[in-house]
Amino acid sequence: MRQLVIMLIGVFFGIALTKGEIISWYRIHEMFRFESFHMYGVIGSAVVLGIIFQKLSRKFNWTSVDGTPFLFVEYPKGWKNYLYGGTIFGLGWAMTGGCPGPLYILFGYGYTVIIVAIFGAIMGTFVYGLIRHKLPHY
């Protein structure tokens, strides 16, 4: 039942990113060329509302349906892996025009060729797992 609800949240997310044109390579290209406010508006409004949600939930002690605290992300302090990894991700993002969510959504949209990029991403994650102990972190 829980998995079904989570899947429906995914459906909502997939529809929103499609209708908001966020899955389009063109929108990402335009964003990195600073030629439209669209993507900045999408990410900016999502973050501002996210901060408000986070503050309200702490103030009023909102919990999950299980009564447990919300799983807000807390990342270990540091910068190396965030900056280096983020930069590598950015190179790929601008190339494929899709971050991980849109890659999946594009498959559903009908651009099935994107499965090649998803395969590449799984391979990239695998290779990271193999060599991570040699890379600088934090």
């Binding site: 990894g85 990029a117 590449g120 994650t125 991570r132």
Partner: peptide
């Protein structure tokens, strides 16, 4: 597709998160 996807998958795991 292949290299771009690879960079996405490698980079996100190294950075410990995506968008």
């Amino acid at each position: 597709f292949l290299l771009g996807g690879f960079l996405v998958g490698f980079g996100v795991r190294y950075a410990d998160g995506c968008t």
